[in-house]
């Protein structure tokens, strides 16, 4: 397997504040790698270092085989950065933005024009081509931002919180666009604070917290680290709830909702056995459901330390 990003021991401090505490990172070529973490975890700092905008205190990295520190120019030729704040000129129109960026990529004039036309169509911006970007909605600005990134297909695309501040519909649209880029084979380093986003888009996820990677794996692997499925039993009254807590050794309880959650492998045999047991104990049960751990659970479990 080849890796587009290979970083070891990246460290960055501001005075006494350690922002990145020795980050090792390997992003497989053609994959979507997500950095997931709360605000202030160091996601953007890491992206800025990998995009040649910020120098690390120590550590090394290669991007598509080019050394980040000794050959930033070669790195800049193969990356594209879509920052946390849309990297577009708001005073110019969509078309002017695209043409400007195409010229800065040194495309010959005719080819640049053609590319602009293709991208306007591809990213659904034809009707808005002559409008100033300042009048765009958040979703449109993001689409333009992504279109600019695709003027020349980059080997590595940074998407730094691409849907922060977008409404759900625009977010779906951006996700759709990102999936198209993935289908085109672009390697993507995505940062997000939305677990759903990482779950939806990423092949691998690294959970970043307090400047360190506290867990890494596929979404499924991360979910399995905090245990399997649970059977959630809502009791009808406080008395039954008390007995359920005493006898079923539940993993989680909620007195307000009168619910207990018991680990299960999800097989019918085990569920039937559990239900029979409830019957036998004479518990008044209102409702039984199965619960899958979500990335949210993973996230909260892993980042509990810093929140406490």
């Amino acid at each position: 397997m080849t890796y587009t990003v290979n970083a070891t021991g990246l460290r960055k401090t501001y005075g006494d504040h350690v922002v990145l505490d020795g980050i090792d990172l390997a992003v497989a070529t053609g994959s979507v790698f997500s950095l997931l973490g709360p605000n202030g975890a160091g996601k953007t700092t890491l992206v800025r270092i990998l995009a040649t905008l910020l120098a690390p205190d120590s550590g090394t990295a290669t991007i598509a085989g080019h050394d980040l520190l000794s050959d930033p120019l070669a790195v800049r030729k193969v990356i594209s950065l879509t920052g946390q704040y849309a990297a577009v000129d708001e005073v110019l129109t969509a078309e002017e933005n695209l043409l400007m960026m195409a010229q800065l990529r040194h495309l010959p004039r005719k080819l640049a024009r053609q590319r602009v036309e293709d991208l306007l169509a591809e990213f659904d911006l034809v009707d808005a081509r002559a409008r100033r970007v300042g009048t765009f909605s958040g979703g449109m600005t993001r689409r333009l931002d992504l279109a600019i990134s695709m003027i020349e297909r980059p080997e590595l695309l940074f998407l730094d919180e691409p849907t922060t501040g977008l409404d759900p519909r625009s977010r779906e649209q951006v996700w759709g666009t990102v999936r198209q880029l993935v289908d085109d084979g672009v390697t993507i380093l995505l940062t997000t604070q939305y677990l759903e986003e990482a779950d939806q888009l990423a092949d691998r996820i690294a959970v970043l917290d307090g400047g360190s990677i506290v867990a890494e794996g596929t979404a499924a692997e991360l979910k399995s680290t905090i245990g399997g499925e649970l059977l959630r039993i809502e009791l009808a009254d406080l008395e039954s709830y008390g007995r359920a807590v005493a006898h079923l050794s539940p993993e989680r309880t909620d007195e307000r909702l009168l619910s207990v959650e018991v680990p299960t492998d999800g097989s019918p045999t085990e569920i039937v056995a559990l239900l029979a047991r409830l019957e036998r104990e004479g518990l008044a049960v209102r409702k039984v459901t199965t619960v899958h751990p979500s990335l949210d659970d993973v996230f909260f479990t892993l980042t509990e330390r810093s929140a406490a």
Partner: peptide, 13 residues
């Protein structure tokens, strides 16, 4: 103070 300069800086220009 705008995102566009980050893009310019990360380009081979």
């Amino acid at each position: 103070s705008n995102g566009i300069v980050d893009r310019f800086r990360s380009m081979p220009i």
